[in-house]
């Protein structure tokens, strides 16, 4: 699956490159540089200090993750009696069962609904806006792009109070809509930026020839832009899904009841509810991260590319 993802991803920019050698996609460049460097410096003496630092940072990264995984298999009595950095001698699934019995799947479903609908709308409206901006020759188009780019710099935290007011006035407080609508808005700037860069790489001749054949805007969008921008849409989609899935501030401020609780907020509530049963809280943490771990294993390249795409160049 991993090799499949990697090959489809590099295949499309390759096709674009054949048509327009000036502007290869960023993923393609990454892969190519990588190859050059791997054959690059033979016989270089090993960098001991660098290696040591690398392993040290790995330890710092892994220790907390290792700790929550082994702790989530303990009983809460076990937590206080034995050494917590060693795996327990009598593992139990009780913490996980407790989490599942406390509506975990309900919160999981809420997160899924919010994430999927947010990402679907973000992709649809961003690709439309990106098509308009990339093909626009007017001043208005350029101004619009500048304003949207400015949006990347708007800190969510600083606007949360008016967003709260707005959601209240719209009668959407404590609904899933309250989470979906603002998160769409804040995802748009970066998504448009990444997709615009991709759409600009589509050769102008392709647009011209479609127009000559009498294709309208919608036809061009669905038959040319969408297929060509697929790698960018993948990247944007996975990145924004990660952001929304893990988002905490909007749910914290804009929802209240357990009916519409999403996973990050549920972790927060669990830790209060479970109190000293720390293994159960950490089991919830582990369960909440599992879906993303699976996605990461399946589509690592897209996630990594997505994270750096907006800022890498």
């Amino acid at each position: 699956m991993m090799t499949h993802t990697a090959s489809t991803q590099s295949a499309t920019p390759d096709a674009g490159k054949a048509l327009n050698p000036e502007v290869p996609g960023f993923e393609h460049r990454d892969v190519k540089q990588n190859k050059v460097r791997r054959t690059g410096a033979p016989g270089e003496k090993p960098n001991l200090l660098g290696g040591l630092g690398g392993w040290l940072w790995l330890a710092i990264i892994i220790l907390p993750i290792y700790y929550i995984v082994i702790t989530s298999f303990r009983t809460s009595e076990d937590l206080r009696s034995s050494n917590q950095l060693l795996p327990t001698t009598n593992p139990t699934l009780a913490p996980f069962i407790k989490v599942i019995q406390n509506d975990f799947l309900h919160y999981f479903t809420n997160s899924l609904i919010v994430t999927l609908s947010t990402v679907a709308v973000v992709l649809a409206v961003s690709v439309m806006a990106a098509y308009y901006i990339a093909r626009s020759t007017t001043l208005g188009g350029r101004r619009l792009f500048q304003i949207i780019l400015l949006g990347i710099a708007i800190p969510v935290q600083a606007t949360i109070i008016p967003v709260y007011y707005l959601i209240q006035q719209l009668g959407l407080y404590d609904t899933l809509w309250a989470l979906i609508l603002p998160q769409i808005a804040f995802a748009i700037p970066l998504s448009v930026l990444i997709i615009v860069n991709f759409v600009r790489d589509i050769p102008a001749e392709l647009f011209e020839s479609m127009k000559v054949d009498g294709a309208g805007e919608w036809k061009i969008l669905t038959a040319l832009v969408l297929p060509m921008a697929k790698p960018a849409l993948m990247t944007v989609g996975i990145y924004q899904a990660l952001q929304v899935w893990n988002g905490f501030l909007f749910p914290l401020v804009l929802t209240q009841s357990s009916d519409v609780r999403v996973l990050p907020l549920s972790l927060w509530e669990y830790s209060g509810q479970f109190g000293i049963d720390v293994p159960a809280t950490l089991a919830a943490v582990v369960l909440s991260a599992l879906p993303l771990l699976v996605v990461y294993m399946l589509a690592r390249r897209h996630i990594v590319a997505g994270l750096t795409a907006g800022f890498g160049k």
């Binding site: 439309m128 949006g151 708007i154 606007t159 109070i161 008016p162 707005l166 808005a185 448009v192």
Partner: peptide, 22 residues
């Protein structure tokens, strides 16, 4: 084409940015 994106962005990001000053 750009209208839906502009509406979402305007209502839930740009207006709140000015709203916080108000």
């Amino acid at each position: 084409m750009a209208l839906p994106a502009v509406l979402f962005f305007g209502i839930f990001a740009l207006i709140p940015l000015f709203g916080v000053v108000v």
